[in-house]
Design a protein around this nucleic acid. Sequence first.
DNA 1: CTGTTAGCGCTTTCAA
DNA 2: TTGAAAGCGCTAACAG
Lengths: 346, 346
Amino acid sequence: MAIPSGSARRSNGGVTLFDVARLAGVHPSTVSRALDPLQRKRVKEPTRRLIMDAAARLGYRPDLIARGLRNGRTATVGVIAADLGNNFVTPIIHGLTGSIETTGMLPLIAETQDDHDRFAIILDHMLSRRVDAIVVIAARTGDQAILESAGKLVPIVIAARPMNRTVLPQVIHDDRRGGQLVAEHFHELGHKLVAQLHGPVDVGNFPRRAEGFSEVCRAAGLNEVVLPGRAEFPKIYDGERLMQELLERSGPFPTAVFAQNDNIAIGALSQLRSAGRKVPGDVSLAGYNDLPMVDQLCPPLTTVLYPSLEVGKAAGNMVRQLLDGETPTDLTLEPRLIVRESTAAV
Amino acid sequence: MAIPSGSARRSNGGVTLFDVARLAGVHPSTVSRALDPLQRKRVKEPTRRLIMDAAARLGYRPDLIARGLRNGRTATVGVIAADLGNNFVTPIIHGLTGSIETTGMLPLIAETQDDHDRFAIILDHMLSRRVDAIVVIAARTGDQAILESAGKLVPIVIAARPMNRTVLPQVIHDDRRGGQLVAEHFHELGHKLVAQLHGPVDVGNFPRRAEGFSEVCRAAGLNEVVLPGRAEFPKIYDGERLMQELLERSGPFPTAVFAQNDNIAIGALSQLRSAGRKVPGDVSLAGYNDLPMVDQLCPPLTTVLYPSLEVGKAAGNMVRQLLDGETPTDLTLEPRLIVRESTAAV
DNA sequence: CTGTTAGCGCTTTCAA
DNA sequence: TTGAAAGCGCTAACAG
């Protein structure tokens, strides 16, 4: 009860359209029209000036909540991310913000922590808030059903984490091709025995990367050490753990390792260093995403560029298209192999 | 006009409190009470069950916009950041999100790009959206006036970038002490000639860091090379440029350099490498913030830990206190010097 | 070109 | 314990 419920709580200082109308000596609806960029022509110029003056004098500020209730749009895009602590999602949100805010929309952000129940709660909450659209950066395969059902109520765009056979529009990236690029690179360098450090299978990117990589290995006659270990959620620590498993394994050690994202690669690199293995002297190592600063690692990391910023921008454009009633086509952005110094010929 | 204006556009599928009331055979206000956790006791148990059943059957979802209009609270915290592409702000938002969302609040985020006009527009926009509070991570000294005036309308918390003599509550960090820590470290290592690579003076952190550093230098008898160049906005590129200036300068070259943030340090490091200077062999280098992965640089960067996550959490708590009518006390978190391998004895 | 009217979905007095 | 009524601030028909 700390917040007073009277007019004192109103953050515009209590100045409403009616106050402006009274001061200008016109009807509220005229004020509404004068202030609406699409309708201002319907108000005679002198009247409009009168209104603008009154509004300025009173310090009038439209109430976007009331407007939202009235016309059903909130100028808000819900963004569901897994973890804002992850360097990978920030550029996506950055791109998205830039691309939607030209229309006056703002992102409303929540984090699932990659938990399905939290995902469901957040989705529900966003629907309650009547966001105009939702961009999902946090989709796991188990979320597909509720996502598609929510998609009947509000436009939803799937970004970054691909889903199989969904009706929802997607802005993704060719993860399979990315995996292929790494395997081809290893092959060209003459590696014969390679390994993958896997991310979780229910995040669509990882199985695709795995598939692309293995495909090329088979075709090119590379032997792939199969590791059971998968990261629950690929942070640096998981990279250390996965590399530890690989090191403890008996049999010949691979000469090249594909970490399915940069965090895994960073952890793996540090673990290799502790074990006294040289990169790329003893082992070549490649990551995925091209996070900021992996070019400054020791050695600079060979990785696949994931165009996060572009994914965010494109998702924003897709939102705009959907709100304009257009039917956007799925977008798949291309990966690009960035060869640095962590990979070398055998 | 793509969005139909009839009931079809309503994202809850058009199910309102009234629909639930009709199905349950009670008055809407009873439904409202039954659904409000604070009032549910005022509804007889069987009635409540009836209502809950009806709500569940219809898939009722409360309209938070309507509720917001009615009771003046939107359960939204505006967050004004300078640039989401900056690795430094993300943990703050992460901490903030975690700390407010237990109360059902969500952050609404906008970026100023460090532009004063954009700042003003965004602030205005947030007030129009009737956010319950605003957390400002993007304050520059020139923004103080409009911030304080907005502070009369809605609770505002200043985070990360300190302001001088403001009435607004702040969650900051002892930047001056941080600067001192670096200078003391250089002094202990026996350096006699040092330099600073400055960030912009109208972002409160930088002059404080500069002051703390220079203070200790004077007291300890270190000579400080004074550089006129200041980064407009400290990104990696600016670090390169500033180091370039330093390298081109005539006279003896400092044996230790304090980059006022990690981005500057990273750029400086790369520039030093290009110039064939060894770090820390020829020059010791320290940064500020302890961004993720600067421990993986070559050499791992000595820097000052900036507790971004804690700043975000604390800002969230402060928002809660303000909304509960409490008067929070300013919080100043302590810096900690993280000594790694980029600094060494002369 | 401007005024009138109605109502978005909800909560909260006030009565009964 | 429940119902009735009013209204948060705005906009979009519909008249005039």
